[in-house]
Amino acid sequence: MARTLWDSSVGKKTVMAVSGMIMLLYLVAHVIGNLKIFFGAGEFNHYAHWLRTVGEPFMHYEWTLWLVRIVLVVAVVAHATSAYQLSRRDIRARPSKYVHKKPRASYATRTMRWGGIILGLFIVWHILDLTTGTVHSGGFQEGHPYQNVVDTFSTWYGNVIYIVAMLALGLHIRHGFWSAAQTLGVGSRTRDRALKTVADILALLLTAGFVAVPVGVMTGVVS
């Protein structure tokens, strides 16, 4: 069954949809966590510490966190690999363009590939910036995420990178959420409006929620 899934264009698209939904679920949790930054360093840092102790005493320190990280890495790799392979197939299937060109499809639909690449690069940058601190601008301090976040958004490029990526994310989710419903066969004529509305709301809330943090630092609300 695994082979059938991976060998078929419809199956590979299913892998994209499922891995996309896993990442989407994670992002909803992530944005809720991020917004705690508006309630001060104490609450934010405490939340970050709690992430490492979730599931204790059943789980050891950081086990749950690592479990989530592993699931996410698998999802990102599966998503990016199937996106690459499906895109290659699509481009091969339509080698010659029409002489008479027409603007096609919505902006969110046309930017899935470029938007996806921006998101992929962003994920790498984001981890090197705020998880490992490798490319961090200030003196990165493990266990002090509040200060690290403030440092990142005190640089112009930090703000630009995050805000551009979050706009790309909004567009990606706008087309992606609705698409995943079609791929998984749960879309229908009667549900179409509702699915599109949920996609728009999710895209808007996630983008606004994530962008609020750099804007908060820039305006001095968070410092």
Partner: peptide, 18 residues
């Protein structure tokens, strides 16, 4: 039919609606 469709070298759906 989906297997044959893939074998013929058609692309995949990106739900553009065209």
């Amino acid at each position: 039919m989906v297997t044959q469709m893939d074998a013929e070298g058609f692309g995949g759906c990106t739900l553009t609606g065209e």
